[in-house]
Nucleic acid binder design. Sequence first.
DNA 1: GTACGTGCAAACAGTTTGCATCATG
DNA 2: CATGATGCAAACTGTTTGCACGTAC
Lengths: 144, 144
Amino acid sequence: MTQLTDLKSRGHSLTKARKALVELLDVSQKPLSAMDLVAVLFERGLKVNKTTVYRELKFLVEQGLICEIDLGEGNKRYEAVPTSHHHHIVCQQCNAVTCLDMEDELHLMEQQITDRTGFVIAGHDLKFFGLCPTCVVLAAETTA
Amino acid sequence: MTQLTDLKSRGHSLTKARKALVELLDVSQKPLSAMDLVAVLFERGLKVNKTTVYRELKFLVEQGLICEIDLGEGNKRYEAVPTSHHHHIVCQQCNAVTCLDMEDELHLMEQQITDRTGFVIAGHDLKFFGLCPTCVVLAAETTA
DNA sequence: GTACGTGCAAACAGTTTGCATCATG
DNA sequence: CATGATGCAAACTGTTTGCACGTAC
């Protein structure tokens, strides 16, 4: 896993914006959008231009420190590179995001698909939508 | 499956744009974006404003005649409502789209997830990326 | 004449680009 | 001083909205 400190050896600085972005994503429980990050940085007194944030995010993805995900909201979200590739389930009520690892099942699927279709599979994108345990309870109470 | 003719009984007209959109999606081998559709309609001599296309697509989704998919390109694509819910594999080389049905496997996964996390799952989004059989051959030839 | 349908211009969100400037090895 | 980092305004893409007009039962 690429570290912030690795950037230095590649001739890049550890600027405050850069460090702050990686740290924010590291501690965030849910993936954040570029505009989320601009807002959070601002709240913390660190005024970083949105252009810079977009550029940094792109850079950090290229450098392998963070990754980009698409939850189908019409924008991208970013998260710290996880220990392993994984998947998300999004609560349709409260937007909570939980991570899942379905890699084993997906690899089996991919094998099947290659056998059946001849496609060579390079990657996948899997997400689930539903209600988180909390919202399930709330929904049940409202209906009852 | 909702039909074009069903719209009439619900008090909607079968306008030329509406019919053309459904027919185009019906015969298309790959999901099309709103702008694709504007262009194709234009080529066929049917000048329909993009606003109308966006509004029609939204309407047709609501009416259950077509469905909206997101292949992660930063826009939406539309396809005729398939006989069953299904998934896509996109060729990263030529953008060919092939449909797959992984519903059985996904339902098993969803059961597991509910058991493990307490999330109640309402839906999912699964797509694969890779090389279609044709592009695999081309890639092999280039490398060799 | 009351919904529905359409077109056009403008707005909008998310993102990217051009350009000038600053900072640092 | 060369490269990387930053800010600002403007552009751009996909999409939506406001409003006026047109159409059909």
